Simulated assay, not measured.
Amino acid sequence: MLAVRDRQDRQAFAELFAHFAPRVKGFLMKAGSDAGTAEDCAQDVMATLWRKAAQFDPARASVATWVFTIARNRRIDIARRDRRPEPEDLDWHGSDEPDQAEVYEAAQETRRLTEALADLPEKQRLLVQRAFYGELSHSEIAAETGLPLGTIKSRIRLALDRLRQKMT
């Protein structure tokens, strides 16, 4: 592997390929891949081994560990890709007009939420607005305000409890 990494030695790569390709294929088949998929994946793993040889660090892992980690990750990628659901058929011919009762209810709910937010103590209201309207994480709010993370979390939790009580 060091010869492949340091000198792009094709003969050394051929020896690695001859040694690892069948083992990777067997590993993938034991993990549930069919022979064709395992063969394709093993080829891809070996190509990755060649392309990313410069990243190999014998201090971090053995060659076998590195190769089988690449194979495992590639198998997971393929499984995720194969399990990806097909998009649903969307009903584009439905009514373009929203139900007026739903529009009215949403407006009422928005009004109640706005009033409930306005009733919060200012310190809590500002944090809720940053978290939900500003789409900031608690850590980002803490960095921005200089407040401790625990304080941010406590104030937001208390504010949400108050909002929940007012909205029910």
Results as ranks from 00 to 15, higher is better:
Met1Phe: 05
Ala3His: 05
Ala3Ser: 11
Asp6Gln: 11
Asp9Cys: 09
Asp9Trp: 07
Ala12Gly: 05
Ala14Glu: 15
Ala18Thr: 05
His19Pro: 01
Phe20Met: 06
Arg23Ala: 14
Phe27Ile: 09
Met29Ser: 12
Lys30Met: 15
Ala31Tyr: 13
Ala31Cys: 01
Asp34Cys: 03
Ala38Trp: 12
Ala38Glu: 06
Glu39Pro: 01
Asp40Trp: 02
Cys41Asn: 12
Cys41Ala: 15
Cys41Asp: 14
Ala42Gln: 06
Gln43Phe: 02
Met46Arg: 14
Ala47Met: 14
Ala47Ile: 14
Ala47Gln: 12
Thr48Tyr: 14
Ala54Trp: 13
Phe56Ile: 05
Asp57His: 06
Pro58His: 02
Pro58Trp: 03
Pro58Asp: 09
Ala59Lys: 10
Arg60Trp: 01
Val63Asp: 03
Ala64Tyr: 05
Trp66Gly: 04
Trp66Gln: 03
Trp66Glu: 01
Phe68Arg: 03
Phe68Ile: 02
Ile70Gln: 11
Ile70Leu: 14
Ala71Ser: 09
Asn73Trp: 02
Ile76Leu: 15
Ile76His: 11
Asp77Tyr: 07
Ile78Val: 15
Arg83Val: 02
Pro87Ile: 06
Trp92Gln: 03
Trp92Pro: 00
Asp96Tyr: 03
Asp99Phe: 00
Asp99Asn: 08
Ala101Glu: 14
Ala101Gly: 12
Tyr104Phe: 07
Ala106Ser: 03
Glu109Met: 06
Glu109Asn: 03
Thr110Glu: 11
Arg112Gly: 08
Thr114Val: 07
Glu115Met: 06
Leu117Glu: 05
Asp119Phe: 04
Glu122Ser: 10
Lys123Gly: 09
Gln124Gly: 09
Arg125Ala: 09
Arg125Lys: 11
Gln129Lys: 09
Arg130Lys: 15
Arg130Pro: 07
Phe132Ala: 06
Phe132Met: 10
Phe132Ile: 10
Gly134Tyr: 15
Glu135Ala: 13
Glu135Thr: 04
Ser137Cys: 04
Ser139Asp: 15
Glu140Phe: 12
Glu140Gly: 09
Ile141Asn: 07
Ala142Trp: 14
Glu144Tyr: 03
Gly146Leu: 06
Gly150Leu: 10
Ser154Lys: 13
Arg155Trp: 13
Ile156Asn: 13
Leu158Thr: 13
Leu160Gln: 13
Leu160Ala: 00
Asp161Gly: 09
Leu163Cys: 08
Gln165Trp: 01
Lys166Cys: 02
Met167Val: 08
